[in-house]
Each structure stands twice: as C-alpha cells, then as structure tokens.
Amino acid sequence: MTGPTRRTLIATGAAALALPGLARAQGSTQLAIATGTTGGVYYPLGGALANILSRNIPGMSATVEVTGGSIANNQLLGAGRVGLIFSQVDASVDAVRGEDRFRGRPVKVRAIAVLYTNRMQVVTTAASGIRTMADLKGKRVSTGAPGSATEIMAFRLIEGAGLDREKDFRARERLSPAESTNAIKDGKLDAYFFVSGVPTSAVTDLGASPGVQLRLIDHAEYVPKITEKHGPVYFPEVIPAGTYPGQTTDNQQMSVANILAVLDTMPDAMVRQILETTWANRADLATVHAEGRNFTLDKQKTAAAGVPWHPAAEAFWKAQGATLA
C-alpha cells in the first residue's frame, strides 16, 4: 500500500473516532500499525500481523506504516496517528517518563505483548580496519535513521565507549540500514549502527556482497556503564558466528526487548481481540522472519515489557499461563 493511502487511512481514523489510530465506517474497523524501515524486522512482521488481523477479525482492515522506527512510532501513537506500534522497550520507557526525545510530551504507552530481542549491531568490514569501538574514532559512521531507536541506543553506546558523537567521527550520517549497506559498498561509509532482530536483510546483503568480509564489533563490555545511567533495559547477548555470511566469530553485543504497544485508551475488548487472534496465528509470523518464532509465552514478563501492561493484555497473558513476574 502506498504512503498516501496509508496516510489517508490514518487521517480518516483521526476524524472518525476519538480513539487514536482507529477508524470505523459502515461496520468496518481500520487499524494503522507503525513498524519501521523496510530493511529491518518490524516491517515484515508488521505486514504479517496486518494480514493476520485483517483475515481473522471480521470487518477489520489493518495497514502498515513505514516509519523511522521506535521513537517515531511512540510519537505517532501519542499524536493519535496510529493505533498499534512495534517498539523497543527503551524508547517506550522514555515516552512514558517524558524523557529524552519525549521531554515535556509523555505518552501513555501500554504494552500488550513482548515479542523478541533486538540486538545492537555495529557493522563494518575487514577493509575498514575497525576492530574495536575505539577504532571508530575518525571514521565515517551512520547512527541510524532519524526517529529510530537505533539512533538513541547508538548514542548511548557511543557515550558508554567514551566517544563523542559530535567530535570524534569524520562524518556522522543518519541512514537506514539498507542505505548504510549501500554506502559501505560505494566506499562512502566505514561503519554503521543498527538495532534489530537477527538476521536482518541489510546486514545479510552486506555480508553476501562479493569481495566484502563482514565484521561485527564487540561492545557488550559497555553494558554495565550504560545501564548504570539509563536503567536495566539493556543486557548482554551473543550473535553466534555464522548468523550472517562471512561472520566468522561470535559477536558480544548489547540487546533490548521489543514490544507491541497501544495507548491506555484502547478498549479492553479490542486489545483482547488483537491478542487472541495474533496468538492463535503466531506461526504466521515465523513464516516471514525467523524472529517470529521467539514470540513465546515465557517472554511475557513485566520486567521485559518495561512499561505498564494494558489491563486487558495483563489479564490475557495470565489466562494463558504466563507468570509475568
């Protein structure tokens, strides 16, 4: 669906209902879902989710919105332009608290499901000579698309590694992962930051390029310093060797959970319907991306969600047998 068509749906929702991101007309319900860039994981999973909801909920038409990512998604949710979002936990925590990019404009974000882990990937090639975070000094880097959670997480990692994002790079771009991969291929960029599930298509594309030796930079050692300042939303994980073409070693990196989220004003009945339908058809998510397999009952933890549960979601997961604690 084209951008203007999606925007028309969202505008219709704002005019037709006080409930943000939803439109009802002639017995139908239209739901706008904010995802991310086309080179990431949110977008294909969002497309699968839209198909699940549209196919199985009578009268519902769910559509996906291509966005900069989690920060933009929480802002769109707060502005009433979408009804359901994919988001990294750190971005939604900031939104609820009214901090950082949401200073003075808090958003009443409520989690309805914990999905999978997003992994910070500091992507480069052997030809760049970059082996450590310190080696990024003086290089041309991209810290992610504007409005993405990649950008805010990259800034926190850069600071944790003792670098200055304004002074220490030869150039700092704000590119999507697909744009970043192309820029490295074209010799216009040395490294980029991207937070996503794995594998992600843009990094796979770079690793599979002829004459390119992919390298992922370790950075898990900086997690304690980062969480000391920003809270326990991040944790160390490993991207195993072989996840990407040419990746010969494990990558010690920093991760954060992903959630599906809505505003606190979404009716309980709508939340239940979305969750019941999505959970019953969750196998469809795994057909579009491997991370869909990680949408499991044991992931439904209050600590992982980061922000308060929507009451209907909390009741749903308890009924499914999740402990939540």
Rank of each mutant, 00 (worst) to 15 (best):
P146E: 14
F169I: 12
T265Q: 12
I184V: 15
P177Q: 07
L45T: 10
Y192L: 13
P146M: 13
I112M: 07
V256T: 07
T124H: 04
T150Y: 07
F194W: 15
Q75P: 01
I112G: 03
A261V: 12
D100P: 00
A202C: 02
L19P: 00
Q252G: 06
L214E: 04
I57Q: 04
Q26E: 14
V288R: 03
I71S: 02
P146T: 12
A202M: 08
L45M: 15
G47T: 02
L163E: 00
W309R: 04
L115C: 09
T37H: 03
L189H: 11
Y222V: 03
D205T: 13
G39D: 08
L53W: 10
R131Q: 12
G138S: 09
A261G: 11
D164L: 01
M60T: 13
A303Q: 14
S209G: 01
T204P: 00
I85S: 06
S180Y: 05
A315K: 13
R140C: 02
A283I: 00
P106N: 04
A220D: 15
S142L: 08
H310K: 04
V82I: 14
R293H: 14
I71T: 15
T12V: 06
A25D: 11
A261W: 08
S92L: 03
A304T: 11
T287Q: 11
V198E: 05
A313D: 08
G207I: 05
L49F: 01
Q121V: 01
T277E: 06
A25P: 00
T143F: 13
T248G: 02
H230W: 15
G83V: 07
G3F: 09
G162Q: 05
D284A: 11
K137F: 01
D218L: 03
G39L: 06
P224T: 05
T35N: 05
L175Y: 11
L214A: 08
D190V: 14
